[in-house]
Design a protein around this nucleic acid. Structure first.
Lengths: 244, 244
DNA sequence: ATGCCGCTTATTGTATACGTTGTCACGCGC
DNA sequence: GCGCGTGACAACGTATACAATAAGCGGCAT
């Protein structure tokens, strides 16, 4: 037993604390903090993420922030431009299409397996997630709703028992959240909980194929709510001028 | 020793820096070097990757190596254990199964789209890849054969026009290479080029569905050549002894 | 002789310092 | 008045130095 109690959770601002180091975990916490903020749209696409600022906020040096930023970059939640720093990724229309196409393929493909493996306990977990999402929606908490929706899809994918594919789906869901932030329309926000509950029912009854079909429609419906118009970004105008 | 042989012909970026070249690109090159070495089995699973050693070999400081190592870790080519450094990932049997299941789903799912989009130029590129693989096989160059085989699968995936899915497939292929290294049997090594060429023909004729079927069989065949037996690693012996 | 304990060493993790580069602003010339 | 060049500043990328930790080893006590 270690005598020094590790109450490392709460650190005010005194940065000079080398001891006690559950450093690795702190990095994980910070990673989650930033990741969550992005997924929940508290950090909007295009927002700049300065290393210094983050280092100060979280009380670690830029080195640690860098590591986290690079991880986020590899997951395509932030964009790292060579000498210009990091910013929250602003997905292109093409990316949006790709992400939903990928989700279509993988999530639908997973349904039969999930239907086969699903047990009562998992059903309850899914229902809980769905309920939370609906609750957040009713309360107008868009951030939480988006988060729970992503959690729902990710969790379903986990139930197929393939960690590799589940992780892929998770990342796709995160990116979807980003896409929603850019191309979403105020009225609709992503998944309708009704679909989610219908999906649970289908899976519970072992009707995997039908669940796959529903998931397909569901994803297509979400995609359809997007206003994917190539808003001319900063550069294109000038490029066209120069090329012609 | 040729430390800085910059094969800078590729990019015509305007920076004319004599010293240091373009740092970012050098990192990319180093990343590729290590990645290639792993994929081609010149670095075997379990091999330790000391930061100091790598830093010295590539003539950069440990900072840069770290970044690269972390990237490789995120792609699951190397395993990073908290205070023990990096080593080439040794995939578990479960991972192997997952990877092939994922490939089954994604690569097969991509076939119809590829069949639809394939043009003559791409066909030639694929044939080239296939030929290279066969040549390497005949020369007994296992490293090159594995590499080209992975390239073939990755390239096909690229042709579906979905960069996100293509990247996923690429990573799955890399991991497959690792799996081959651990569970492969000397006689067989991965893909039979015959399958590859049959696949090309099918795709060329636009028979996407049949191509998907063939791809499915092909992957299953590769998986079947593996000796996925939980070879007791270092610890298990003792554990079993203690438990019984 | 054997098992345990403390020391040494090797290796990673973290922070800081420095160099380079991109951006912005101001001033000059046209 | 407008455009361009130069200079200053700020942010990032890299290297190096330092600290902490785990493993290996030898000595000592029983």
């Amino acid at each position: 037993m270690s005598q020094h109690q590790d109450l490392a959770g709460q650190r005010a601002s005194g940065s000079r604390r080398g001891k006690g180091g559950d450093g690795a975990e702190r990095h994980e916490v910070i990673y989650r903090s930033i990741s969550d903020a992005i997924i929940e749209h508290r950090l909007k696409p295009g927002a700049r993420l300065r290393e210094d600022a983050l280092a100060e906020v979280f009380g670690i040096s830029r080195t640690g922030i860098r590591k986290i930023l690079q991880r986020l970059a590899l997951e395509q939640l932030v964009t790292l431009t060579p000498r210009r720093g990091a910013s929250v990724t602003r997905p292109t229309a093409d990316e949006a299409r790709e992400v939903f196409e990928a989700r279509q393929m993988v999530e639908c493909g997973l349904m039969p397996e999930v239907a086969q493996r699903l047990d009562e306990q998992s059903v309850n977990a899914l229902r809980e997630l769905s309920a939370q999402e609906q609750k957040a929606l009713q309360e107008g908490d868009h951030s939480a709703a988006i988060r729970h929706s992503a959690d729902f899809h990710t969790h379903i994918a986990c139930l197929a028992g393939n960690a590799t594919l589940a992780e892929f789906v998770e990342r796709l869901c995160f990116r979807s959240s980003l896409i929603l932030a850019v191309y979403g329309r105020p009225g609709h926000l992503g998944c309708e909980t009704h679909d989610h509950e219908a999906l649970i029912s289908l899976l519970r009854e072992g009707r995997g194929q039908e669940a796959a079909t529903l998931m397909g429609h569901h994803l297509r419906a979400v995609e359809a709510t997007l206003a994917i118009v190539e808003e001319d970004q900063e550069a294109p105008d000038l490029h066209q001028i120069f090329l012609n």
